[in-house]
Computed example of a mutant assay.
Amino acid sequence: MRSPGPIAYILLYVALYAAFGVSSPFWPKFFETRALPPQQIGLLLALAMLTRLVSGPLVAVLADLLGSLRLVLASCAGLAAAAAVALMQANWFSLLLPVALVQAAALAPTTSIADALSVSVAKPRIGGRRFEYGWIRGSASAAFILGTLTAGQLISPADLSPVIWMNAGLLIATAAAAALVPGPAAETALQHAPFPAPEMKALLRMRPFRSMILVSGLVYGSHAMHDAFAVIRWSDAGISNPIISFLWSEAVIAEVFVFFLVGPALVDRFGPRGAAGLAAAAGIVRWSVEGLTTSAFVLSMIQPLHGLTFALLHLACMRTMGNVIPRSVAATAQALYAFGSGVLTAALTILSGTLYASHAAAGFLVMAALCALALPLAWIGFNRQDQSLPAD
């Protein structure tokens, strides 16, 4: 059974990202209710991050090898749901750690495989209208917000079990939604095909793909200082919690707005390289201003730039992959894209701690410099379609 049009993709992304929304902000607190000390919580979360970095590309390669992205996605979602339920029965670090790592390994490839499925059909017209990746990714961001708000209303400091049940239920819904998604036309033909090793080698040699990985890593990674220390800095400057919440919400609302409305039009108008350059330029402005002021009014003016520094760049990257990456290595390409930015973001998060401790807000200027470095790289090497791989 298949659901026609973009509705199936929206259902898939809503279920998947709502599962993230109900759980991601609350896992540390859940582990605390299991009597884990901060050192063990930190170790568990760090090992889970490393597991995701390794598992994502490996499972994506397997998905391309099998030629059945939907089957692998559904299997990963089901395994992650089972691991979530198992966390309810684990009360010691020695049990929580392996179960949490299994869930991290299962969840790591889900977003990359989902993007590989959706981006591969972003160019055709579905139901007489052009299919836009931004529609489903915007739905995902909105679902994440709604999931977080819902979980916050249902949990209590002593009882976080609703996080487990909602996470597991939504992951099961994700597995079911994967069955509704119209897979790429090439998927059936690839089910018994050998792994396309020559295309894999060509993928890694592609200048536009390498440039995309580097530019996205620099711009996404530049968010590290903001994500780790913005709230601390704003609180120290006397900004109240309601205003901080408003500032943070502004960024997410702008992200959804760009995904749904202005982002696809900007990518159409300026092309992927122009959109990526605009995202990098927005990063220069955003981090420079954030490093120079803690005025709540000024911050409220620049927070919506998140719609450009994240959402617009992501749309540009997805358009590039839809243009130049063949379907036979689509999941692998998506995983390498996530891996590159993930590694650089992790490294810059560590660096941010050192920068903030020694230079305080001046560390944001380093993040602006990373975006300045990304700007010419985006224009020089981003999405040169004459270097694309042959279509499958």
Rank of each mutant, 00 (worst) to 15 (best):
W27R: 08
D64I: 00
P57V: 12
C76N: 07
Q40S: 15
Y17S: 00
A19W: 07
M49R: 13
A63Y: 04
L62E: 09
P38E: 09
A48C: 07
L44T: 12
L71T: 13
P38S: 13
R52M: 15
F31L: 15
W27S: 11
L73E: 01
A74Y: 02
A63W: 06
L43D: 03
V72A: 09
Q40W: 11
P37T: 10
T51M: 12
L16W: 04
L58M: 12
L45G: 06
L71H: 11
G78N: 04
A77Q: 07
A63Q: 08
F26C: 11
M49K: 06
P25A: 08
I41H: 02
Q39C: 00
W27V: 13
L66C: 09
A35D: 10
Y17N: 05
A46E: 02
M49H: 07
F20P: 07
L43C: 04
K29G: 11
T51P: 08
P25E: 05
A74S: 12
F31P: 01
G56E: 10
S23V: 12
R34M: 09
L44A: 14
R70T: 11
L47K: 09
R34L: 12
L50C: 15
F26N: 07
G78F: 14
A63D: 05
S23R: 10
A77S: 13
L65G: 15
A15K: 00
K29I: 05
L43W: 09
D64A: 01
L66G: 10
S55G: 06
R52S: 15
L45Q: 05
G67Y: 06
F30V: 08
T33Q: 11
V72Y: 04
R34A: 14
T51W: 04
Q40K: 14
F20G: 01
V59F: 15
A77I: 04
L50V: 15
L47Y: 09
G78A: 15
A46Y: 01
W27G: 01
L66K: 15
A48H: 06
V59H: 04
L65C: 06
R70C: 03
M49Y: 13
L66A: 10
I41M: 03
A63V: 10
P57Q: 01
A48Q: 11
C76E: 01
R52D: 02
P38K: 00
L73C: 12
K29S: 14
A46H: 06
L71R: 14
L45C: 12
P57N: 04
L47Q: 08
W27K: 02
L73Y: 12
P57Y: 10
S24K: 14
I41R: 10
V61P: 00
R70M: 05
A18W: 02
T51D: 05
A15N: 00
L44M: 14
A18I: 07
R34D: 06
L66P: 04
F30K: 02
L44R: 05
